[in-house]
Design a protein around this nucleic acid. Structure first.
Lengths: 230, 230
DNA sequence: AAAGCAAAAAGTGCATGCAATTGCCTGTGC
DNA sequence: GCACAGGCAATTGCATGCACTTTTTGCTTT
C-alpha cells in the first residue's frame, strides 16, 4: 500500500473499508441513492480499488448498498414500503428481545439495566439529546444482549443499523425525550417483574411510536441525493 | 476469462461463485470447518482468485463462512449454543410469519397454501421423502411471503439457509413425515380461520420439534470434516 | 431544432503479479 | 529427547493492468 491509512481502526484493509463506508451510510453521511464510485473511494481512503470492491460486495450482502452489474454501486435506497417492513420487523425483534430478557436476564443484568435507565432520566431533565441518545443506544443493546440469544442479537443489531439513517432525527421532535424515557420505563418495569408478555408488548409499542416519528423524516429525506463522496 | 464456466447460472462471476459456494455449504456438500482454499476454488470453477475472494467475503458477511485474516476461510462452524440460538430464532421468526399470514394473506394466497398442503398429503402416504421435502420448502416459503413483510421474509430465509445443513437429515427419522404434515395442518387451519395467535403458536411449536430432531444430527456431524473441495 | 448515431470517455469486472504473513520443517543447543 | 530459532514453502492480501460494458458527448441527418 502506498501511504498510511491513518485514524481508521485495525484489521485488514477490507474490514476497515467495510466499517468506514458502512459508518458513513449508517450515520447518514452518505445518503441513500448516492453513487459509490470505486475509484473515488479508493483515492479517498488511499487504497487500491480491490479492497473497495470487496467492501462494497460485503456491504451489498448486508443490504447497505445496492449493486447493479456493470453499473456501479449506490447507497441502498429503501422504499417507503420496505422501510415500513423494517420498522415492523424491528418492533417484533425488540419485542422478542424484551420478552426473553424478562425471562432470562441475570440479576446483575437487571440491575445494570435499571441503573443505566435511571441515569438516563437526568439527560431527559437536562434536555441533553446527544447524551440521551448514547443512553438510548446502550439501553437497547442491553435488551438485545439480555435475550441471551446470539442470533436474535445479530438480526436485531443488523436491522437496527439499516434503520439508523431514518431514526437519527427523531429526537428533534419536541417532548420526544421524555416520551421515550417513559416507554423505556414501562419496559424496564416489566422486565424487573419478569413479566415477559408486558415487556414484549411495551417494546413493540416503543418501536412503533419511534417508527411513526421517523416516517416523517424518511419522506423529507427524499430530496437531496448528491453530495461529495466520503 | 480463460474457459467457459458451464452449467452455473448467470450474473456476474462473483454472484455465480457466491451461489455456487453457498449452495455447497447449505446443502452440506461442504462441511462446517472445511477449509476453503482460494486457489483450489478458483481452479475448480475456472476463474481467477479475485471473484473467489469476493465471494468468500460476501459469504462471510452472510455468516456462511468464517474468515481469519491471513489464515484463510473455512465453512462457518456453529457451536451447539449458537445452533440452539438459531433454531430458537427460527421458531420466533416463523411464528411471526404465521401470525402475519393469518392476518394478511389474500384469499388466493390462502387457497394456494391449502391446495399445496393437501397435495403434500399424498407424499406422506407414499413416504416420498424427497418430494415431501420439496412441498415442505414450498409450504414455508408461502408462509414467509404471506406475511407481506419483505424484511421479515429476508431475515427468515437467511436464517433458514444457515440452518439448512442441520435440518437435512431430519426426515430420516421414522414417522417424521406424518408428524410434520400434522403440524403443518395445524398452522394451515389456524391461518384459514384467521386465528393469528394459534397460527403463531403452531408455527413456533413446529420449528421447536424440528429443532429437537435436528440437534441429534448436529452432534453426530461433528466427526467428519475433511472432504475434497467442491 | 430535435432525433439519431457513432465514437470517445468513464467506470466496472476479472486476471495476474508481487509483497507480506503464516505455518511448517529442519537444525541446533541444552 | 525436547525446546526453540531460523528459514522455507504455501497462502493470503493488495495493487495494477487490461478487456468489456455503459454512459456521455458531439456530430450528422431530417
Amino acid at each position: 500500500m502506498s501511504g498510511k491509512r491513518s485514524l481508521i481502526r485495525s484489521g485488514t484493509t477490507v474490514d476497515q473499508m467495510v466499517r468506514a463506508i458502512g459508518d458513513r451510510i449508517v450515520t447518514g453521511y452518505l445518503r441513500p441513492g448516492e453513487k459509490l464510485d470505486e475509484a473515488s473511494l479508493a483515492a479517498r481512503f488511499d487504497v487500491s480499488r480491490t479492497p473497495v470492491r470487496e467492501a462494497l460486495g460485503q456491504l451489498s450482502a448486508m443490504g447497505l448498498v445496492e449493486r447493479r452489474p456493470n453499473r456501479g454501486a449506490i447507497v441502498a435506497v429503501v422504499t417507503q414500503e420496505h422501510l415500513a417492513s423494517m420498522f415492523e420487523s424491528m418492533a417484533e425483534l425488540e419485542a422478542i428481545c424484551a420478552r426473553f430478557s424478562a425471562e432470562r436476564m441475570t440479576s446483575s443484568e437487571r440491575r445494570g439495566l435499571e441503573i443505566e435507565h435511571q441515569a438516563s432520566a437526568r439527560m431527559v431533565q437536562l434536555g441533553a439529546e446527544e447524551d440521551y441518545e448514547y443512553f438510548n443506544t446502550e439501553f437497547h443493546s442491553r435488551l438485545y444482549r439480555g435475550a441471551h440469544n446470539t442470533h436474535i442479537h445479530d438480526l436485531t443489531v443488523m436491522t437496527r443499523s439499516r434503520l439508523a439513517p431514518f431514526r437519527r432525527a427523531q429526537f428533534m421532535l419536541p417532548g420526544r425525550l421524555a416520551k421515550s424515557w417513559q416507554e423505556h420505563d414501562l419496559i424496564v418495569t416489566a422486565i424487573m417483574r419478569g413479566d415477559s408478555v408486558a415487556a414484549g408488548k411495551a417494546a413493540r409499542d416503543h418501536v412503533s411510536i419511534v417508527s411513526e416519528a421517523s416516517a416523517v423524516f424518511a419522506t423529507d429525506d427524499r430530496k437531496p441525493i448528491r453530495r461529495d463522496v466520503a
